[in-house]
C-alpha cells in the first residue's frame, strides 16, 4: 500500500463529514485507537493480554508435556533446564506446560467473572440511578451490604457454602465484585439523567426501559470497561487466593494460584515451583492494569466530546 493511499484512508477515517453509518463508526473507533496507541505502556499491556490469549488458544501446541500427568519416577522437583524450562513440581509435572494450560483457567475465570458481574452492576446501577426514590434506596442498600464485607472473606463464605471448585470460585468472585460497578453506573447515570438529551428522549415518548437501555447504558459502558479491566488483576489475584487456600481450582487443574499453594512447601529449596506461576500472575495482572489505564485515556467520556 502506498503512502498516498494510507494518507487518504486516514483522511477518510478522520473526516468531519462522514457519508455513511459505517464511516462514522469506524472514524470514531480510529480516533479512540489513536488516543490509545499514543500511550506506549498501554500497548505493552495489550501485547501481554494478546500473548495470554494466544497462549491459551494454542496451549496444546505450546506445551511440550501433559499438564496433569507427571513423571514421578525420574522428574520430581527438577531445576529449570533445557528440557523443563521452568523446572518440574513435586509430582514430576513440567511447570512450563502447567503455566501454559493455566492461562486457559485464568482467562476462564476473568472472562466469566466479567460477563456475570459487569452486566449485573450495570443494570442495578443504571436502574437505581434513573428510577431514583425507593427503587434507588433499596438497590443501593443491597449494594452497600455487599460492599461492607471484604471481597475475599465474602467470596470465602460463598465458596464454603457452595463447595470448593473453580466454577463456584468464579460465581463467588462475580457475586462479590458487581457492587462497585453498580456504584459507578449509578454515579454516571445521575450525571446524565437530568441532561437535556435525556429529557429530549423522554419527550419523544420513550419508555423508561428504552431510555435506560439505549441512551443511558451506552454512556456508562466505557467507564465500566475501564473499571473492569483494572479489576481483572484483582480478580486473578482473588481467584489465585481462593486456589491458594484450596477453595478454588482443585488438583490436578493447573490453576496458577493453586500451583503457588502447592509450591509453598518447597519455597526455600525449590523456589521455581512457586516463582513461575507467581511471575505469570504478576505479568498478566500488570498487563490488565496497563491496558485499563490506556483504555481510560481512550474512552474517558469526560475527555472531549468523543
Amino acid at each position: 500500500m502506498s503512502a498516498e493511499t494510507i494518507q487518504s484512508r486516514r483522511e477518510w477515517l478522520l473526516s468531519d463529514r462522514p457519508a455513511s453509518r459505517l464511516q462514522a463508526r469506524l472514524g470514531r473507533a480510529y480516533v479512540s485507537w489513536r488516543r490509545f496507541s499514543a500511550n506506549r505502556l498501554a500497548l505493552v499491556g495489550m501485547l501481554i493480554i494478546i500473548a495470554l490469549l494466544v497462549v491459551a488458544a494454542f496451549a496444546d501446541v505450546l506445551a511440550p508435556y501433559s499438564p496433569t500427568v507427571g513423571d514421578l519416577k525420574n522428574a520430581r522437583l527438577l531445576a529449570p533446564s533445557a528440557a523443563h524450562w521452568f523446572g518440574t513440581d513435586d509430582l514430576g509435572r513440567d511447570i512450563y506446560s502447567r503455566i501454559v494450560y493455566g492461562a486457559r483457567w485464568t482467562l476462564y475465570v476473568v472472562i466469566l467473572v466479567a460477563i456475570i458481574a459487569a452486566p449485573i452492576g450495570l443494570l442495578v446501577g443504571t436502574v437505581a440511578g434513573y428510577a431514583g426514590g425507593w427503587t434507588d434506596t433499596i438497590l443501593m442498600r443491597v449494594t452497600d451490604i455487599f460492599l461492607a464485607f471484604p471481597k475475599l472473606v465474602l467470596a470465602l463464605a460463598f465458596v464454603a457454602a457452595l463447595g470448593p471448585g473453580i466454577e463456584n470460585a468464579v460465581l463467588a468472585i462475580a457475586i462479590t465484585s458487581w457492587p462497585p460497578y453498580a456504584r459507578i453506573a449509578r454515579a454516571e447515570t445521575l450525571t446524565v439523567r437530568n441532561s437535556d438529551y435525556i429529557k429530549a428522549v423522554q419527550l419523544m415518548g420513550a419508555s423508561p426501559f428504552r431510555i435506560v437501555l439505549r441512551h443511558i447504558m451506552p454512556l456508562c459502558i466505557s467507564s465500566l470497561i475501564i473499571r473492569v479491566t483494572l479489576d481483572m488483576a484483582g480478580i486473578i489475584l482473588t481467584a489465585a487466593g481462593l486456589g491458594f487456600l484450596g477453595l478454588g481450582a482443585q488438583p490436578p487443574l493447573p490453576e496458577w494460584g493453586a500451583m503457588i499453594a502447592s509450591g509453598r512447601r518447597f519455597i526455600l529449596d525449590q523456589w521455581w515451583v512457586a516463582a513461575a506461576p507467581g511471575a505469570a500472575i504478576l505479568i498478566v495482572s500488570l498487563g490488565f492494569n496497563l491496558l485499563g489505564d490506556g483504555l481510560r485515556d481512550a474512552l474517558d467520556p469526560r475527555s472531549g466530546d468523543q
Binding site: 437535556d196 419523544m204 428504552r210
Partner: peptide, 29 residues
C-alpha cells in the same frame, strides 16, 4: 407537542450520530 431546548451543547446525545438521533422518535412511534 414537541420541544426545543436552550443549550444546543446539552440537548444532543454525545454518542449518537444525527441519523440515530432522528431515528429514535420514529422507532418509538
Amino acid at each position: 407537542v414537541q420541544m426545543v431546548f436552550q443549550d444546543p451543547y446539552g440537548s444532543l446525545h454525545p454518542r449518537q450520530t444525527v441519523d440515530r438521533l432522528l431515528q429514535e422518535p420514529l422507532a418509538i412511534h
